[in-house]
Amino acid sequence: MNGQRGSIEEESIADLARRLVAADTGGWTPDGARALAAELGWAWGGTPESPVLITGRAAGNARLRPVGRFEKSYVDGESYVEVAVPVATAAREAAAQAAAYRTVRTEVTPALGTPSIMGSHGDLGPYYDGGPFWGAPFLRWRGREDTLELRAGTEGPGLVLQPTRPAENWFWRQGIGEEYAISGFFGGNRDPANSGLGFPGGWAARSWETVTRTLDGFLGALPAETTALGIRIGMPVHGRTDRGAPLLFHVACGDRLTIGCFAPDDVDPASLGWGTVAQHPDTASVYGDGGPVWRVDAGGPGEPKSRALAEMLVATARAVGVNDPSDLIVGREAEDVDGYHVTYYGLGLPTG
């Protein structure tokens, strides 16, 4: 079935994704948007300021986003910057939201192929929107003119069709170097669709309070986001001191978040909040017998006590003798995630 109003059987999410990718958006002009709605079999509703496309889908109607004051600097003749179609709903808890996203991902990916871009919007969504409370993962199938994104929403995941240039123009121009200018993380693979894709410049944390804040946001959402995206992140973090820049932490996250600590003998990790495998037995499957003695199992989606974790990491780094945030260094191995080259913009830490 094609999902039009009055259909007895709702169109599958995979079929909807195929139709969105193949749709003619007509340059995202008013006439083009109305033609798009007609092509998809959806009725026009709402108001000029907040137009709605009536889809008849159980998850809700689609919304067109007109160019407003936050979008106008990034467009080139477009009147709209996206149409967002909710495709699933879930309970308002991190585990349920991550599971709903994962379910949609596993349906859409075989239909469209491996996404060319993946990441997290962090707490700063496109055109300065805020993200969902549990995390803001996204997958993109990039096209020359239009891009389809599987985006986390407030109630559940949605498919968002958008003109490619304005979205990437917005992201690129956030690379101004100011603290918190870009949040989340962003990764592209070697798909030919990414030809011409640029990564904006990052920013540097200038205080330990900034590092605490960024680690809080990153670690709190990470297990929900990695679960939703179906990825696993392994992140070594080095601490530069007068003894060099040895490995200090290792962050491992798939469906659970585990952090290991490699503190020198003259530091007491237990007093800073670290445990051993005896206190955190689930970490044995991550690090085995040869991993760090000191570690913590922070839990799955929605479970990490991220502020306390961030404070523990910062306190440990400073106890070891890391004097400045610029001396806390993310190892380059963390940039390679399941075939994507990932930049961790939201941390504000150097990579080396």
Rank of each mutant, 00 (worst) to 15 (best):
E209P: 00
A167S: 07
L215I: 04
D216T: 10
R173E: 14
F185C: 01
L229D: 06
D216W: 08
W172N: 09
E149D: 09
G196Q: 14
G175T: 04
G156D: 04
Q162S: 12
F199N: 01
R165I: 00
S183G: 12
G177W: 05
A228W: 10
E149Y: 09
V211M: 03
G143C: 06
Y180S: 06
D146K: 07
T210F: 00
P157I: 06
R173V: 00
A167H: 10
L148S: 08
L215K: 07
R206K: 12
G188I: 13
G198T: 10
G198W: 06
R140K: 09
P192H: 10
I176Q: 13
F199I: 10
D146F: 06
L139V: 03
R213L: 08
W208V: 05
T214H: 08
L215C: 07
I182M: 15
T212G: 12
G156C: 03
R173A: 13
W141T: 07
E149H: 05
G220A: 10
G230M: 13
I182Y: 03
N194R: 12
N194M: 11
P166F: 05
R151P: 00
W203A: 02
E178H: 13
W170G: 07
L215H: 06
G177Q: 02
E168H: 07
W141M: 04
P163H: 02
W172Q: 13
S207D: 11
R190D: 15
P200D: 11
N189G: 09
L219I: 11
W172C: 02
Q174W: 01
A205R: 01
L161Y: 04
S195F: 11
R142L: 11
R165W: 03
S183E: 14
F171R: 10
L219C: 13
A193K: 11
L229P: 08
A167N: 01
G217H: 13
E149L: 12
A167D: 01
F185D: 08
L150M: 11
T212E: 15
G156T: 02
P200I: 05
G217Y: 06
T154K: 14
D216N: 12
T212S: 14
P192Y: 06
A152T: 03
R173D: 10
E178Y: 09
D191Y: 00
R142S: 08
A224H: 04
G230D: 14
R190Y: 09
G158Y: 09
A181I: 00
T210K: 00
P223H: 12
G217E: 12
A181G: 01
L139M: 15
G196N: 14
A221G: 10
G230E: 15
G177M: 04
R151G: 12
G143F: 05
G188N: 00
W208Q: 07
E145M: 10
A193F: 06
A204I: 06
A224Q: 06
G220W: 05
T227K: 09
A204C: 02
G184F: 05
L139K: 04
P157C: 07
T226S: 14
N189W: 07
I176V: 14
W141F: 05
T210I: 04
G143R: 04
Q162Y: 02
A193L: 04
S183H: 06
F186W: 14
F185Y: 15
A205G: 09
G201P: 00
G156M: 05
A228M: 11
A224V: 02
G187Q: 09
T227I: 09
G143N: 03
W203S: 02
A181H: 01
D191M: 00
R190N: 14
